[in-house]
Each structure stands twice: as structure tokens, then as C-alpha cells.
Amino acid sequence: MISLARVGKTFKTRRGGHVQALDDVTISIRPGEFVAIVGASGCGKSTLLRMVAGLVLPDIGHLTLDGKLVTGATKGTAMVFQSPTLLPWMNVERNVAFPLSLSGGDGPEARERARVLLHSAGLAGFEHRMPRELSGGMQQRVAICRGLVQQPRILLMDEPFGALDALTREEMSLSLLALWQANPMAVLFVTHSISEAVLLADRVVVMSPRPGRVAEIVEVNLPRPRSFDQEASAEFHRCSKLIRDRIYGGAAHAH
């Protein structure tokens, strides 16, 4: 569905220098697949995510969606950020429907879709609360609903649980898997946490920094539905070790 072929991106710094954020990245994401990206800071994870969203365009290589070259923000992608960034002047329901209202689809149908999503995210009864009345985890659930309401074919998540405490994080991981199972879409999930990546993803893309390159792509052969019990399995350990070795092993080789 989405494919990046030998993609590269260089940014100009303010002092006139150049920073190579991505170099020779080749990944393809199948419909409905859950892909996690793991890597140290500065390995271009966020750039990669923004590129798939059409917010950043590659300098070299090709980024295609269903065979068509991506040249700008595309319909069919939705973003979820590390902080919930809800609009403080709108209640929860209207926050979820906000992306639809930007394209003029702010009718009762949109409200209904928002309500259904909030219900499935465990936020029934909170539709008319204001964002500041909600806990951090609940706000992030709202932000995920705001992504899902656009019925994306691929949901792009930039360390969405990075600002949450460890317990909320685990709870949110399982909720996300349930939402993903209920909504037919692919997920591209950037994280710093190796165990989070292995628990969630079908494939984990390990990236090495400066310049951002794909160091390894690890297939996770754990059955679904996933649960935390699987963290004790041999496959979980195999994947975690492989990823960890690649991140700390230094030398990156191209695929």
C-alpha cells in the first residue's frame, strides 16, 4: 500500500549546514499491518512519519501510496502526537469531530461517528467534558479517536504514549490493539520502547542514527490477540534481543 523506495531527506540548519535526516530508506507497509519504528533519538523516525503523512517530501527516492506518488498531505493518513494537543475550547466530542469539520463534514453524522469511537475507546459519558477535565491517558484516547474519525487507511503515531506513566502506557497499548482490530487500517508507530514495539507490532523497523537508516526489520511471530503474558515467551525475547543488538551494535548495514 505505502512504499518508500530508497528515500532520502536532508535539512538545512540555521547556520547554513546540512543534516541528513534519512538516507536510503526502503520500507513497504501492507494494508492492515502494524509496523513499529524503533531507534535512538535523531535517527529520523519522526521525519519518516511526517513523510508518510505528506508533510515532508523526500529529496531523493520515491514515496508512493497505492502506486501514486505522494506530493502533499494525503487523504487516508491521520496523525497522533506525543502530546494530546486537544483544542481547549471544544468539548471531547467536538474535538474528535474537528478534522471532519475542517473539510466541511461537521454534520450529525460526524458527531455520531465521534460518539461511537469514544464509546469503543472507553470514554462513554465523557462526550461533553472539556479536555482539561480529563487525565493525560484519557486525553490521549481522545486524540487517538480524533485520528480514527478520519477513517484513515494508515494511522501514524509519533510516540503516542511517551508522555504517560508506565501503568497507563500498558493499558493504552492494549486499548490501541483493540481499536486497531476493530478498525481496518495499518498503523505506523514510532516509539523508544523495545518491549512496546514487540508487543504491538507485526514488524519492527530498527533505525540507526546520523544519517537515519534502516538497520534491520524484525518480524514478530507472536499470535494475536496479544497480551502481556507473551512477554515471557521465547519469541518475545528473541525479537527484543535482536532489536537491542541492532540499536547498540553500532554498525548499520543497508537492506
Binding site: G54, L55, A78, W89, R146
Partner: peptide
């Protein structure tokens, strides 16, 4: 917040929408 501006962009908001619906409030 820059994320919100990006959200607007990824929803293909026009510049006027960005100004009136996000920045001004």
C-alpha cells in the same frame, strides 16, 4: 502548538482555516 498546526495541515486545512479555527482561538 506546532502539532496542532501539523494536524491541520494533515487534514488539508486551508491557511484561512488554520488562522481562524486554530490560531485565533
Amino acid at each position: 502548538p506546532p502539532e496542532l498546526i501539523e494536524l491541520g495541515r494533515s487534514c488539508r486545512a486551508t491557511r484561512v482555516q488554520e488562522l481562524l479555527r486554530i490560531r485565533l482561538p
